[in-house]
Design a binder for these strands. Structure first.
Lengths: 146, 146
DNA sequence: TTATTAGTTGACCAAAAGGTCTTTTAATCA
DNA sequence: TGATTAAAAGACCTTTTGGTCAACTAATAA
């Protein structure tokens, strides 16, 4: 569904939000270990997310990653489009150009609802929603990757 | 949604079926041009599909690709899994392992229906269905890629 | 004010996906 | 049978994705 970079980004953000709510600012080593991702790759991805304004970071002792509590919750769609673009929300399931209601490709009618469902889910769910879904211990035990 | 190889495979198969129904056996040059894919890459993909038994080919004059009319229609899911595996039908949308009903990851409940919809569509639709969806001229004009 | 902690940066490497090219093999028709 | 047509096969190349590494910079606490 998503590429690795997007998966790691989503998992990192959810984990960081969970820790922030406990008053902690997790660092790269902790985050990458908890979400089961390679530390240097995780660092690179988080740097990008910081530059794009999704979250903030602090160097030095007690440093780490954290969300600006003043900002609104972040829909998953924002993260996905920032990393992968909007092809998944607009593109044709069959890989065809010139595919719309008036000139549908053979798969258009069938694929439309799928695209709709994906779009709605990722528009409505936020990082903060996901971090809230469970109590922290249970969520933590299941956020590990494959 | 799919990788290029899968897209080209599906488009090639639909085009070949459409031509077969007109009593023709299209070759690589014709197919790749009609579906807007690179000829050598298309050749490679079709060779694989032939080896996997999805269709047959003939060398020499009047040669080309064709389906064995005795075989049953081919669900899109068969082609997709043969090329990409079944990750799209079984994997977790969030990229997590250990994700099932009894131990759901944060996205599990929301993603389930999407996976279901995709699975059903690709299980029910066949190459032959798609080739039948329109009259050949209209279908041909819209099967071109992006 | 310096040692330590922790994020930043950019160059680099490896694997997979996407794509090309050349040689060989097989079928058919003149 | 030989010329022609068209697929088969495999080596090779390029780009993207995934991932690593080492040097650098900033914050802070002792």
């Amino acid at each position: 569904m998503f590429k690795k970079e997007t998966e790691y980004a989503l998992r990192s953000l959810v984990y960081i939000e969970m820790q922030n709510k406990q008053g902690r600012r997790p660092g790269i080593v902790e985050i990458s270990s908890e979400i089961d991702a390679p530390p240097p790759f995780t660092a690179k991805i988080l740097q990008r997310l910081v530059r794009m304004g999704f979250l903030e970071s602090m160097k030095g002792k007690n440093g780490g990653y954290f969300f600006n509590p003043g900002k609104p919750p972040i829909p998953l769609k924002q993260v996905v489009t920032a990393i992968e673009g909007d092809k998944i929300f607009t593109g044709c399931g069959f890989g065809l150009s010139h595919c719309d209601e008036s000139n549908p490709c053979p798969l258009h009618d069938a694929y439309g609802p799928i695209r709709e469902t994906i779009d709605q889910l990722l528009s409505n769910e936020t990082i903060q929603d996901l971090a809230r879904k469970d109590n922290p211990e249970r969520a933590l035990s299941r956020i590990k990757g494959n």
